[in-house]
Design a protein around this nucleic acid. Sequence first.
RNA 1: GGGUCGGUGUCCCGAGCGGCAAAGGGGGCGGACUGUAAAUCCGCUGGCAGAAGCCUUCGCAGGUUCGAGUCCUGCCCGGCCCA
Length: 385
Amino acid sequence: MTFRFTLEATEGMARAGVFHTPHGPILTPVFAPVGTQATVKAVAPRDLRDLGASLILANTYHLHLRPGDALIRDLGGLHAFMGWDGPILTDSGGFQVFSLADLSEIDGDGVTFRDHLDGSLHRFTPEVAIQIQHNLGSDIIMAFDQCPVPDDRAMVRAAVERTHRWLARCAEEHARSGDPGRQALFGIVQGGIFMELREESARFVTGLDLPGYAIGGLSVGESKADTYDTLTQTVPLLPADKPRYLMGVGSPEDLVESVARGVDFLDCVLPTRVARNGAALTRAGRINMRNLQYADDPRPLEEGCTCYTCTHFSRAYVRHLVKASEILGHQLLSIHNLHLLLTIMREMRAAILDGTFADYASAFLAGYQPVGSQKGARRNPLPVG
RNA sequence: GGGUCGGUGUCCCGAGCGGCAAAGGGGGCGGACUGUAAAUCCGCUGGCAGAAGCCUUCGCAGGUUCGAGUCCUGCCCGGCCCA
C-alpha cells in the first residue's frame, strides 16, 4: 500500500519511522519547509535537495487564486510545475480562514473569501478544497478545517463541530473523485487549548480510517505552556500506527519539544520568514543579523555549522547583505535556517534510533535560549527521559 | 559686477510663509515574526528630566514683534541667468 507508515523505533513518546509516498519515502520525524506559492521563498529546489529536505508544503488557497489549479494540472501537476520531485503536502486553505479572517466569511457549508489579490469573491467548500488538491496532485492533501482562536471556548467548539462535518465531506469527496492510492488525505484535530474538545475531536477524526492525522490550531496565539500541555495530552489520543502531523509549528525548541511528545511531521514558515527579515536561527537561540554587533564579525552565523552559508561567508558579510536588502541575504539566511532545522530533525531521528533521544533533547534545550525568555526561565519538563 | 532662487532638527533629502522642539522620507539603531496577504510590521532617532517641565536648535549678525525657521537690514556660502 502506497501510504504505509512503518515505525522503526520509539523512545518514550518519541518515534522514528518511514512514511511511503508516490514520490519517495519520508523519514520521520520530519520538518517540512513551507512553499506556499509553489516555492519555498528564496530557496531553489536544488538547494532544498542539498539541504536534505524530503517533504515540502504548498497551499491550496494561494495556488487556486494564482496561477490556478487547473493550469497546474494541465502543466503536469504541482511536482512538475515547481520542479520538485519529492513528496509534497498541500494545506487546504483552512488556515486562511484564520489568517485572512478579515477577508473571509464562514458559514456551515464553507467559506467565502475576498481575494487578497484583487478583491474578487471565491467560494471554498470541503469539496472544492479537495478538488483543487486533486488538480495540484500533491502526495498528502489536508482536510478543509477551521482553525479558530485557541482560547475562546464557544468559538472553538463551533470550529470543532464544523471541522468534523467538513472532514466527513472531504473524505467523501476524496473517495468519490480522487485516488486514495495517489494522494493521502489527512484529517485535522482541532479543539484549541480545551482538552475535552481535543478529546472529542480526536475521537471523531480518528474514527475515520485515514492514512495520517494532524493536530491543528496550535501556536496561533496561546502560551508556550498551553501549546506543550495540549500537545502532551492530544498526541496519545491518536493511533500509534499512523503519522502525526503538528501543523504550523517549528521554532528550534518547538521541534524538540514536539518530537519528544510523539509528533512525526511538522511544518513552519518561521525559518524562512525570519530569514527574510534578517534573523539567523542557531542552537543557542535566534540572532538578529541587522544588529550592529555583527558588522565586523568574521565568524560564520553559527560556529561548526556545515551549511553553504556558514562554510563560505561571515556574519559581517551576511549583515551587509541584509542591511543592503540584497536578495542573496535572504537566500543565505534561509539556507542556514532550514539547514539547522533539518539537521536537528535528522539528529533527533538518529538519537531515537540509538535510544539516546532523551539526552539529546535535554542537551539541546539546555543550550537553547528562546526568544524573549529570561535567562534561567522555567521550562515545561520534557515528557521523556 | 547686476539679477534671481536657495541655505531647516550638528548623516542626507525635505515640508514649513508669525505661536514650532518644527510634517514627511531616506539612512541609522532596536524589537516582533510559528499550517506565509510578510524581502513584512512596530518603536526610537537635539539634550536633561524621562508625568505635567526645562534647556539648546532652522547659514551668520543685528532689527521689528507679546512671540521669528517664518517679516526687515547687512554679511557669508551655493545654483542659475545677464554682463
